[in-house]
Design a protein around this nucleic acid. Structure first.
Lengths: 240, 240
DNA sequence: AAAACCGTTTGTGTCAGATCAAATTGCTGG
DNA sequence: CCAGCAATTTGATCTGACACAAACGGTTTT
């Protein structure tokens, strides 16, 4: 409903007992409503925790964007998840984090002790919804990494930044008259995008140039892209 | 502990309140202990549910192997998860399944109504552990799809079939004397493996032939592979 | 304002894996 | 045991993405 909440994750509807992570944080009583607890701030590129650190706290992103990534011993990196407002991180089924968490922008977090969560069925349920949402996004991203071309990957990535579009079943072309247009903030460098999409920085750059040449997008600032024809991009995602 | 429980997922330890999906099902009181409910049987290649079906039940795999996959409109397929004994499936944060679930072998399932789960904090907690375990495996698989070579993918896949090895921190070379050897059942065709690893059937076949030529494995039946030197394969996973 | 820097774009050659096309092997039922 | 079909392997070629290198552009430093 509130346009600012609509990320690619926000395909939750109102029928479930809880509304899910993305929507909930906007309401005065999200997880946070139950918990007056600590806030934490990060600057861009601060690391919240490293893979292998002891997992004792959960976090909810209140503002900003973060990423989870894993490294191979030779330095190859894969960004496994992008976290936006309302998303939670810090889960672990063992005692240690399986990923590193780093801020992509300035970030504001709400901090929860793991104990608080596991003793409250309410929070338990809430966390559960978040996990399910993340799981679906991971499934979708798995398809992207396993089966999509570079052009499809970048297009899918861009569509993910457009509220209410590109998701399951996609809202489709907007109604007649409405401009099929939008400016999106990447809040990631080309390198970070590449590591998220399983490509190289050069390939990402080339695809963006290609979309620019085709007149589908305009690069305003390096990390701000105006999509001139959303449907055009959507057609390139491989999902239509 | 019980060797049959040790799949690639079984890196759960005993410190948590619950032991996690893989271990638990072996105990008389897993999720199942709480629930005398329905059993369901599937033959190899039966579809349990399709992407888009209404999600009303959860399932626990009691015996056999299943896969979750997604299709792109042009027919490209990506297998997003392999489910083994003790794994749960059927989660959804919307009302519909985001993946298709198909049996790879004969399968025996325990069936739960979603309601039963969400009203029982006990089950809630249990399901939660399963989700966390799946999440970690998805993260790992994301790295594989985004950053690993064909050789590394197939090697990682094989290591995943060796109990207690290839996981986080890998148990390492077995103690002196013990044979560094094992026969693993793939229970998947080359096509299914390819769709899981984001490769083509030909590439999977070529890599297997290469490992054969190098003397690291022997193909016994098509879906049964003897690994002659586990450490050798492990070195090829990209994780060392 | 020039210099230094960093992230990005563009150009060129290469190669891993895809694609297309047999050949081979393995399995099933008569 | 053999015919017939399906799955797998192998071979030849092609190509999309990678690797390396150089140029560009915007920002900060001095």
């Amino acid at each position: 409903m509130v346009s600012a909440t609509l990320t690619k994750h926000s395909d939750l509807d109102g029928q479930a007992p809880f509304k899910g992570c993305q929507e909930n944080f906007k309401q005065p009583e999200g997880l946070v409503g139950k918990n007056p607890g600590r806030k934490q701030r990060l600057s861009a590129h601060d690391v919240l925790f490293y893979e292998g650190d002891k997992a004792e706290r959960l976090y909810e992103v209140m503002r900003g964007v973060m990423m989870l990534y894993k490294l191979l011993p030779d330095g190859r990196r894969q960004v496994v998840y992008i976290l936006r407002e309302g998303d939670m991180l810090g889960f672990s089924n063992r005692d240690f984090f399986d990923c590193t968490a780093e801020a992509l922008t300035e970030v504001e977090l709400q901090v929860f002790e793991s104990r608080e969560i596991s003793t409250s069925p309410m929070m338990q349920h809430y966390v559960n919804r978040c996990l399910l949402s993340q799981m679906e996004n991971l499934h979708e991203h798995t398809v992207l990494l396993g089966r999509k071309s570079a052009l499809e990957r970048v297009s899918t990535f861009l569509m993910g930044l457009v509220p209410n579009r590109g998701g399951h079943g996609c809202a489709g072309p907007v109604e007649e008259g409405k401009p099929d247009t939008r400016t999106v903030e990447l809040s990631m460098t080309r390198q970070e995008i590449a590591d998220y999409l399983g490509l190289t920085i050069e390939t990402v750059s080339r695809v963006i140039s290609q979309l620019k040449r085709r007149g589908l997008i305009k690069v305003e600032k390096q990390d701000s892209i105006h999509i001139s024809h959303i449907c055009g991009i959507c057609q390139l995602t491989g999902m239509h």
